[in-house]
């Protein structure tokens, strides 16, 4: 099988199986919309790098996902966003962290990759760089949703970090559990086998100011080379120590595993138990979306007509066109 493929995610974690329709349906619609956007772009010959940026921008702009507008809040009630992007063929990459006013962090990461000799710019300097390049910025109020103000309040009441953005009112502290979700990402491959990956997030609810997660770290949250492209989601601290995104590629290169085997191994063996998910595509157009959490907002499509939009392990809305 050789052909284009695309996958995207809106975060994984302890997504309740009885998620009310009014919370589930808008997210499913957004996943479908973003998938359609990405598929059309690939079909019209856009490079995978352009496609993953385009799709992640759209996910950032959607207030129901934890990235860009809708980012969760730090312990200080502020937003601190981070993102990274990587091109598989050249292995060029860019990353940003500690953003407070940039509407689309993923596009700033792309600019760091293309307009600086560096890979990773952080905090005030990243903001200054954004202004120097005239990217769109907004007041902090643009990013902060009423729902996230409530979540921070609840998290503070339980005095712990939490990232379950799907439930407005957890009944007891345990339901925060280790649910460390909420990130968006996209991976894509074109007919020529060019690959790219991108990931963006607001981080944790009630995270310490200055906390950096896996999302802006090349090899942890994002990785792409000539073999595959990967974007991860889950408990960042443990994804960092497992270098989960790089792991998928390393297992294919060094152990000869297939994309599906490598993805499953990375999630089960290298990632955090119960709080890890990833999406990946290979150079020959395969796609895999493994996770060990309750659910992961996800969607994918391949050139041979397969599409899938799903939240939990079961209840997958998939079809194959002839």
């Amino acid at each position: 099988m050789v052909g284009w493929a695309i996958a995207l995610h809106g975060g994984g974690g302890e997504i309740p199986l009885d998620l009310p329709d009014e919370r589930r349906i808008p997210r499913e619609i957004a996943l479908r919309h973003c998938l359609d956007l990405g598929v059309s772009a690939l079909k019209s010959g856009k490079s995978p790098l352009d496609v993953v940026e385009l799709v992640v921008r759209e996910l950032e702009n959607h207030p129901d996902f934890n990235a860009g507008k809708g980012s969760v809040l730090t312990a200080g009630g502020t937003v601190e966003m981070e993102a990274s992007i990587m091109d598989g063929k050249t292995k060029r990459c860019g990353a940003v962290m500690g953003l407070t006013t940039v509407v689309n962090p993923i596009s700033l990461a792309r600019l760091v990759m293309e307009k600086t000799p560096h890979i990773n710019l952080a905090f005030d300097a990243a903001e200054a760089f954004a202004r120097a390049h005239g990217v769109e910025t907004a007041e902090e109020s643009h990013f902060i949703t009423p729902e996230n103000i409530d979540r921070l309040k609840q998290a503070k009441e339980f005095d712990r970090v939490q990232l379950d953005y799907t439930m407005p009112t957890p009944k007891e502290p345990e339901s925060f559990g280790d649910s460390q979700t909420g990130t968006v990402g996209c991976v894509a491959v074109d007919n020529a086998g060019n690959l790219a990956a991108a990931t963006s997030t607001g981080g944790f609810v009630n995270k310490m100011v200055g906390r950096v997660g896996d999302t802006p770290l090349i090899g942890a949250g994002t990785y792409a080379n000539q073999i595959c492209a990967v974007s991860t989601t889950g408990k960042g601290e443990e994804i960092i120590r497992g270098t989960v995104a790089r792991e998928v590629a390393a297992l294919m290169e060094y152990k000869g595993l297939s994309l599906a085997e490598a993805g499953a191994y990375a999630v089960d063996q290298s990632g955090p138990k119960g709080t890890c998910g990833l999406i990946a595509v290979s150079a020959n157009g395969e796609v895999t979306m493994p996770f060990n959490s309750t659910g992961m907002f996800r969607a994918c499509a391949t050139e041979d007509g397969y599409t899938e939009i799903g939240i939990w392990a079961n209840n997958i809305n998939q079809k194959t066109e002839e």
Binding site: F123, D124, V161, M208, R211, L217
Partner: peptide, 10 residues
Amino acid sequence: SPHSYLAFSG
């Protein structure tokens, strides 16, 4: 800390 990586003023 509950985190792996802290930066700048934080």
